[in-house]
Amino acid sequence: MSTDPWIWIMGLLMLGIFSFLIKENPFYRWVEHVYVGAAAGYGLSMGYNNIINQAWDPLVVQGKLIYIIPIILGIMAYARFIKPISWLSRWPMAIISGAGAGNALYGATNSSLVAQVKANLLPLNSFNNIFMVVGVLAVMVYFLFSRDQKGPVKHFASGGRMLLMVTFGVSFGNVIMGRISLLLGALQSIFGKWLGIISL
């Protein structure tokens, strides 16, 4: 069993979170608040570090005057807390949204559309390739709403729907696998680091 007080705190906090499985209780709520507070404090310290490293130092220590523009924009974002000048906060938001949308548009078009279409232009010389191409077409037909899905189109779209169901099943299976991994991690910490029953 560990003699490190921090490991004991970790173990007790984990038990506090797990106690929710029985029913909600004050110990669980207290641990939840500790988690939120610790995360907020950590985020605050990282934010402070970033202001120093990415804004203050380049401007004041290195004399890079160009940094004045983003710093002023950053300060303007806080104008929303002062009612008479709250409109000023829209400018940095507009720049962030515009730059973000521009970046996303370029990246999505190039890497998520063109590259994916290219990746699906496969020679139909193996079962896998045929299945892949037909599957992509079937799913796309399922989302074709500009005409009634009747006759062969309906059957093809139904095939697409089946493939989507299989994909959702795979996602569900992955979620279970992921959640068991999280439980496993917690139990390894409790039995290994804290109680010393298993060696890690």
């Binding site: 890497s111 590259a115 994916q116 290219k118 990746a119 994909t167 795979v170 996602s171 992955n174 979620v175 696998m177 992921g178 991994s181």
Partner: peptide, 16 residues
């Protein structure tokens, strides 16, 4: 994380 795998697979398939 395993939950994200279905979202990442198309990028693997495309060689990205």
């Amino acid at each position: 994380v395993v939950v994200e795998v279905p979202a990442s697979m198309p990028f693997v398939q495309a060689g990205q």
